[in-house]
């Protein structure tokens, strides 16, 4: 039997918030930058998606900052959740993704130096598209890896619950 994994409440809330916001950011990001794919597409919906995408990124990066602080400097006792380094990597990746989003949306803003390094607005635009995929896949890999490390793997429900049901 695997050890019981203890996840503090704040970490659980932060991750759930992160996942919910990330889902919206990725959806609106793909929708804004790939309007030719398919789907929900009306003038008002596209502009709404752009606004959502840009401003939700701020929530994403704030959660990432708070999580990094919580996981590194303010780590509570008894938190034995595996893949801590992976989550810190995702936090840092999220901060980078936010910077890239900001640069893509505001190429003449305070991140214009980054835009210049990335080859101008076109390079930033395309790299942002690429990192939409990177964020999606890294998080999918994390979710799978976390499932593998959990008590319930390879089931979707834990052995204890199964036992009760049975």
């Amino acid at each position: 039997m695997k050890d019981r994994i203890n996840v503090p409440g704040p970490a659980r809330v932060m991750y759930r918030t992160y996942l919910a916001v990330l889902a919206l950011v990725l959806y609106t990001g793909f929708d804004t930058f790939h309007p030719f794919l398919s789907g929900w597409r009306y003038p008002w919906s596209m502009s709404l998606a752009g606004v959502f995408n840009f401003y939700l990124c701020w929530i994403l990066v704030l959660v990432a900052f708070v999580y990094l602080y919580y996981a590194i400097l303010g780590r509570p006792k008894g938190w034995n959740e595996p893949l801590g380094i992976f989550r810190i990597f995702i936090g840092l990746l999220t901060i980078w993704f936010f910077l890239l989003t900001f640069a893509a949306y505001r190429p003449n803003g305070w991140l214009n130096g980054l835009v210049h390094v990335l080859g101008g607005p076109v390079g930033t635009f395309k790299l942002y598209e690429l990192f939409l995929w990177v964020m999606l896949l890294v998080n999918v890999i994390y979710i799978y890896a976390r499932w593998v490390k959990s008590e319930r793997f390879p089931r979707l429900t834990s052995a204890g619950r199964t036992k009760k049901v049975v």
Binding site: L130, W133, L136, L137
Partner: peptide, 10 residues
């Protein structure tokens, strides 16, 4: 294309 790269990675 980024999409191609993305789908291959996916």
């Amino acid at each position: 294309a980024v999409d191609t790269l993305g789908w291959v990675a996916a």
